[in-house]
Structure formats: structure tokens, C-alpha cells
Design a binder for these strands. Structure first.
Lengths: 142, 142
DNA sequence: CTGTATGCAAATCCTTTGCATGCCT
DNA sequence: AGGCATGCAAAGGATTTGCATACAG
């Protein structure tokens, strides 16, 4: 079963309707394998389809986050970044302060540390986010 | 040498002037030992002093971040939180999604993991931020 | 003096919302 | 049919900025 079918199934469970717009937005989100902002997504969609408003893009992203298909992150730039989760391993992010690129790296060991600490404090973890800011390899040569 | 003296020294080096407003804002920031938003700080100051504008508070916070006295963080709430660094050990944050409180926890082991990974990727770390979202001990009893 | 800093209000950026209408199920 | 979804434009919240004025060094 592919992601989109899962989405349809979960939609039923959440009592959400599958409209033309939502279908287009969701397929596009599932096709992206990097971070994007709501507005970037809106502009991509607008160039390919018509009749999709910015408001609907924002609303659909929220639905996807609520359903657990998409994660929302802030990288210290005053806007929210999204990425879809399914099929991706857990990872953290490295943000290059020079070129602005965002890199991913696997983080099982960080996750494990977090679990240990949370456990000792009695916290129930919902999600965790580690973001490292710095200069990437290529930008150091400048 | 106390923090404020250090600030004056660094100001000279940065070619920044020490105005009445800046002096008040900086002393207040150094006196706070928890997170605050720019607007919260502005309101605190306004109730104690007069002649300090919101714009100046925002601008001064940026100066303090640039100078390395203050750290800026986003906790997924669409606004920036600040906390002053000096004298505080490195720590990460736990945000309770129910009561909204922000807890701190020491994170040397997480830091160490991050350093290892960054090293292997050739990244030069500037700063790192781990934020854990979940339900705190007290809120689980609901 | 000269260059920063300030205050004010307007502007900007991102995101959310009210409301009338449209369209899945 | 009934309820969730959409579009539009307006509202909202946080932060930044232009510009004339004030003041530290």
C-alpha cells in the first residue's frame, strides 16, 4: 500500500474529506524529499495547477501534521519548515549559516540519550528536535 | 569582573554605545534566569522605567545575541525566546505541550554525540539546540 | 562634531480566520 | 442533505525598518 492510500484510509478515520485540492497538495508533499515552507509549497503548486489557494495549503499542512504524515520544524528563521516522515529514518538537522542549506544526519544515539534523560525526569516524549547550526564543509574553504 | 563590566568592554570593541536605554535593558536581561520573549521583556521594563520603546528592546536583543551574551531559541510557538548565557551551564529544553512550561536539562552527553557526528561530516559547529516536546511529570496525572 | 541609537509609526513577513459558497460522502 | 472544505480578503501577531531627532564618545 502506498503512502497516498494510507492517507485516504486515515482521512476516513479522521472524518476528513478528500477534495481535489487536498489530493493534489498531499501527492505533492509526498513527492518532496526535502524541507519546504508552506509558501514554497504554495508556489510550486500554483505553477502546476490552478485553483489552489494559499489558505488551503496552510490548512492542509496542518491536517497532515495532525495526522502524523508531516513534521513541522523551525530553523531559527521565523518560519516553519515541513517534511514528510513516512519512509524516512529518524534524523536531525544541520543548518549551514553561510549557504543556508539544511543537511540531515542520523541521530539514533542522540535519541537514545534523550530517552534516558526524559525517563529520569518522568517526561513523556512526544517528539524531539536537534538542530545544529554552523558552517558546512564546503563553506569552510571560503 | 561582573557581567555588566564585560558587556561594557565588549561594547567598546564592537563600537557600540552605552545609552541609558541599553544599560537598563542589559542589566535587566542579566538579572533574568529564565526564558523570555522580546515582548515580555519590553513589558517588564515598561512597568519599571519610562522612555524605552519596543523597537529598542528588539534592537538591543539582537546586539546581545551578536555579542554572544544571549541565545535565541524557537520553541515552535512562532516567537523567539531569549536567555542569557553567561554563568549558565549548557543545557537543552523540554517543552510541556500541556502546561506550556519549559524545563531545562543538562546535555553534555548529547553535545558529545553531536560533536562526533559533526566532526565526521566536516561541519564546524556554531551552536546546537535540542528541544524535546512532550508531557511533563505533573501533567501526566490528568 | 560624527556616528550610533532612539522613538514612532508604518511596513513586512508569515500565518490564521470569518464568512459566504462549493463539493465530498 | 449535511458537514467539512475552499477562496478571498481581512485580521493577526511578531518583528523589522525608514526617517527625523537625540545623544554618547
Amino acid at each position: 500500500m502506498d503512502e497516498y492510500s494510507v492517507f485516504k484510509e486515515i482521512s476516513r478515520r479522521y472524518n476528513k474529506k478528500i477534495t481535489r485540492q487536498r489530493s493534489i497538495i498531499v501527492r505533492k508533499v509526498f513527492s518532496l524529499h526535502k524541507h519546504f515552507t508552506a509558501d514554497e509549497l504554495y508556489k510550486m503548486l500554483r505553477s502546476e495547477y490552478s485553483g489552489i489557494s494559499r489558505a488551503t495549503v496552510y490548512r492542509t499542512l496542518r491536517v497532515l501534521v495532525d495526522m502524523g504524515f508531516v513534521e513541522e520544524r523551525e530553523f531559527g528563521r521565523g518560519k516553519k519548515y515541513y517534511e514528510h516522515i513516512i519512509g524516512h529514518d529518524s534524523h536531525s538537522h544541520f543548518v549551514c549559516l553561510k549557504c543556508g542549506r539544511i543537511f540531515e544526519f542520523p541521530d539514533e544515539r542522540i535519541e537514545k540519550e534523550i530517552e534516558i534523560i526524559a525517563g529520569s525526569m518522568g517526561f513523556k516524549i512526544e517528539k524531539a528536535s536537534t538542530i545544529v547550526y554552523g558552517i558546512c564543509k564546503e563553506c569552510q574553504g571560503g
